[in-house]
Design a protein around this nucleic acid. Structure first.
Length: 794
DNA sequence: CGTAGGCATGGAG
DNA sequence: ACTCCATGCCTAC
């Protein structure tokens, strides 16, 4: 990396500099370049060839006017990879890509690949073009063809006493500029102090050139191009005329319309992403952040501000960005490329002006995030509101040259099919969707994009992606309140079923068989248990296909997705065309929301959906449909044997039991309720065994400890002649034998009871009901205990 | 209780 | 596997 001190005259005197990898214009090779000035001359003050006495100014082979040597300090020449061009007629591309320059020099080289261009692009240099092509006549033709560019009229801006130029003065217009004016311009464009808001954008990583773009009715609009665009592409070889007008970098895949528009002497209105302006790490910017301002808009803006506008980047506002929190997340790469370097998390206040000149002050800061940073602009709400933008719209960041003043603008989203409000805003504000405007919304800047169908299509796809991006899952869940899950753990438990692939292991505990499952349970279909007048029980399930209700045996276990075809218990009702088992009128008492449920279900089924609801989806659906499970249970089971601890509507395994003496289950009953009871009892027993084991171990340890203590006290008693302490030790022993888990003890003793009796006596903590696998992972589920404040876990 | 600040989380690329 | 970043969410006020 060499010296830490950039010795380029631009940075001269500074004590340190940041360096980045880049193409050195001095050596033509890959080197460390100063972030500030782009210079690779860490130890030298000037480029050796800059204004060298011998080489001096050189001439454009096309317009025969002066060009710079292309050194790093030669700011007027756009040099990314070492290309050299005439700053006046912009024919540098021709020179850069097709031929080398015929540069007189004292070292007798008839062809000079300036600044090591030969090393960088050897192929380019070798592709020479006959000098005839660059005769004066040819030059004039090209100049006329350029038209709007007005040839090399900007030549007068340059001045330098150059003997080589003098030799050409007889045939070409030679500027009479002074070194002073040159330096003045140079400083104006490039010299920006490092610190401070307005002048701290140490982004002159690459030399730049002022490209003059003449419009028929306006003064030249000078635009700082992006170093990366032109030199990188192969499109330059298509001809100088196009590139001459392509003052902004081309998109990676330029639209064919761009060229045609250029040829017509107009400015491209195509909204295409352009590689960003120079800046730290700009090459790492994702294309999604590339500015998509059209040439026309840029011209308009530049003219309006009477300044050089350098589009930097843009971002589609997310919901968070546009929210009232007032924090706009800046893409990291953009923040680091175009915003001041900050070392403290608190950041710095930064002033950004809008098109009206109104200045906004934001706090530019970052948060540590995963060993990285997350950059934000704080306090953007007023500006966002002023621009009348919202999520889905795009904010643009540009820079005014000289001075480096940041400018914020906006562009309304084109396709607001998903962002209805945005469209409303656009219409009310008079903006057409998809147009670029700037805060303050001056009407003359709202230009029609003039997109072709291809452009529109591309743009539409792009916008759709953006909208999709801003409407991600979280947002979707949040905005779609119907998806909000409000279901209690108790309700969730009732949907648990053994995994269909799970093979239970039957264990016998105190004469009761219990099924153990290695696999965690799954969510089954919610069904409704009914009890008839005579006490017989039925189970009602709704077909997911035809939505008809079917009467099933109480022991039937249904998967989350169930249809009539799976009704193996009633062959007359095993297909959807079969009439419903129960009339809606009769179903109402059990499913109060039956009608509403069915109505919603039908409309829901009309919506295209990718997958089938299952598991959590089934729960979500239940919640969405408003099928208050509590209500269902309460009404469906009628009078239940509710445990006093449970509230009305409780659907726990206790409360859904039929009243005593009614519908008593046989010991071998395999209905859902009984199986659940058995499962839970199994869990109880396992926990009890575990606890007993732990207690036994603790008891052993305590006994040992007590025994040791007793020995010690015996010794002490013997010594002291006292025996009173013996009783105390006995008390301690008794305490340790006390089992604090009386409840489990009691429950364990119920093993011999009938299931009904067992159920009656069970009053367990909620987590006890849950199989261990679920209990452990309950925080991973999106259920919210009914009695929480709704903030979820944690 | 409401709000803002700050960090954590997890989906997406 | 890793980074980025949209958003969740805890904490302090």
């Amino acid at each position: 990396m060499g010296s830490k001190y950039c010795m380029n005259h631009v940075c001269r005197g500074t004590t340190s500099s940041e360096w980045k990898k880049g193409w050195s214009l001095k050596s033509g090779g890959f080197a460390n370049l100063c972030y500030r000035c782009g210079s690779a001359y860490e130890n030298s003050v000037f480029c050796e060839t800059f204004h060298s006495e011998e080489s001096g100014w050189r001439e454009c082979r096309i317009c025969a006017k002066r060009i710079h040597c292309g050194c790093i300090a030669s700011r007027y020449v756009y040099m990314d990879f070492g290309g050299v061009g005439c700053i006046t007629c912009l024919k540098r591309l021709e020179v850069h890509s097709k031929q080398s320059l015929q540069i007189p020099s004292n070292n007798s080289k008839d062809t000079v690949s300036t600044n090591g261009i030969k090393d960088v692009h050897p192929g380019v240099v070798e592709n020479r073009i006959d000098d005839d092509k660059f005769s004066t006549q040819r030059l004039l033709q090209l100049t006329k063809a350029i038209g709007a560019i007005d040839g090399c009229s900007g030549l007068e801006q340059l001045t330098h006493e150059d003997p080589l130029l003098k030799s050409r003065q007889s045939s070409t217009r030679i500027p009479n500029l002074t070194q002073q004016s040159l330096s003045s311009t140079f400083k104006t464009v490039n010299s920006r102090p490092r610190d401070g808001v307005k002048n701290s954008y140490d982004s002159l990583a690459q030399p730049s050139v002022n490209f003059s773009l003449m419009t028929p009715s306006s003064s030249p609009i000078t635009i700082l191009p992006f170093p990366g665009g032109i030199a990188e592409g192969s499109e330059q070889s298509k001809g100088s005329l196009e590139q001459a007008l392509n003052v902004l970098p081309k998109p990676p895949k330029p639209s064919p319309t761009v060229g045609s528009e250029v040829n017509k002497g107009t400015v491209s209105q195509a909204r295409v992403a352009r590689p960003p302006a120079e800046g730290r790490g700009r090459n790492q910017l994702l294309p999604r952040y590339w500015p998509r301002i059209t040439d026309q808009e840029l011209q308009q803006l530049s003219g309006d501000l009477k300044s050089i506008i350098v589009p930097l980047f843009e971002k589609v506002l997310s919901a968070s960005d546009a929210g009232r929190i007032g924090r706009l997340v800046l893409p990291k790469a953009c923040a680091e490329a175009f915003f001041p370097l900050i070392n403290q998390s608190e950041g710095i206040p930064i002033r950004i002006q809008d098109i009206t000149g109104k200045e906004w002050t934001f706090q530019f800061r970052f948060w540590p995030n995963n060993n990285s940073r997350m950059y934000v602009l704080e306090g953007v709400t007023p500006c966002i509101q002023n621009m009348q933008v919202q999520a889905g719209d795009t904010v643009t960041f540009s820079r005014i040259e000289p001075g480096g003043q940041l400018v914020i603008g906006c562009r309304k989203a084109i396709n607001n099919g998903d962002a209805q409000d945005s469209q409303t805003l656009a219409s009310t504000s008079g903006d057409s969707p998809g147009e670029t405007s700037f805060s303050g919304a001056t009407g003359n800047l709202l230009l029609n994009g003039g997109k072709t169908s291809d452009d529109s299509l591309q743009q539409s796809i792009s916008e759709r992606k953006k909208l999709k991006n801003i409407k991600n899952k979280r947002l979707h869940m949040h905005t779609d309140e119907a998806m909000e899950l409000r279901i209690t753990w108790e309700e969730a438990q009732e949907l648990l079923r053994p995994s269909p692939t799970a093979e239970p292991t039957v264990v016998v505990v105190e004469d009761h068989e219990f099924e153990e499952f290695e696999e965690p349970p799954i969510f089954g279909k919610r069904t409704v248990f009914t009890s008839g007048p005579s006490g017989e029980q039925d189970q009602l399930a709704q077909c997911d296909s035809c939505l008809k209700w079917r009467i099933l045996p109480v022991h039937a276990l249904l998967s989350a997705k169930w249809s009539c075809s799976e009704n193996i218990w009633d062959l007359k009702r095993c297909s959807c065309p079969a009439p419903e088992d129960i009339r809606p009128k009769d179903l109402e008492p059990f499913v109060p929301s039956y009608k509403e449920s069915k109505r919603r279900k039908v409309s829901e089924n009309k919506m295209p959906k990718g997958g089938e609801p299952s598991g959590l989806d089934a729960l979500a659906t239940a919640a969405v449909l408003g099928d208050n499970i509590s209500d269902i249970a309460e009404s469906s089971v009628g009078a239940t044997t509710r445990h006093p601890r449970h509230r009305p509507g409780c659907t726990c395994i206790v409360c859904i039991q039929p009243p005593s003496g009614k519908g008593k289950h046989e010991p071998s009953c395999k209905c859902n309720v009984c199986q659940t009871v058995r499962r839970r009892f199994k869990t109880l027993m396992m926990r009890k065994k575990k606890r007993q084991s732990e207690v036994a171990q603790a008891k052993d340890r305590a006994s040992l400890k007590i025994e040791l203590g007793r020995v010690a006290r015996d010794v002490e008693a013997d010594a002291m002649g006292k025996e009173a302490d013996m009783e105390e030790s006995s008390k301690g022993q008794l305490d340790l034998n006390c089992d604090p888990h009386r409840e489990d003890e009691m429950l364990a003793q119920t093993a011999g009871m009938s299931l009904t009796t067992l159920v009656k006596s069970v009053a367990l903590p909620l987590d006890t009901y849950l199989p261990p696998a679920i209990a452990q992972n309950q925080e991973n589920l999106s259920f919210i205990p009914a009695d929480t404040d709704g903030r979820g876990h944690q």
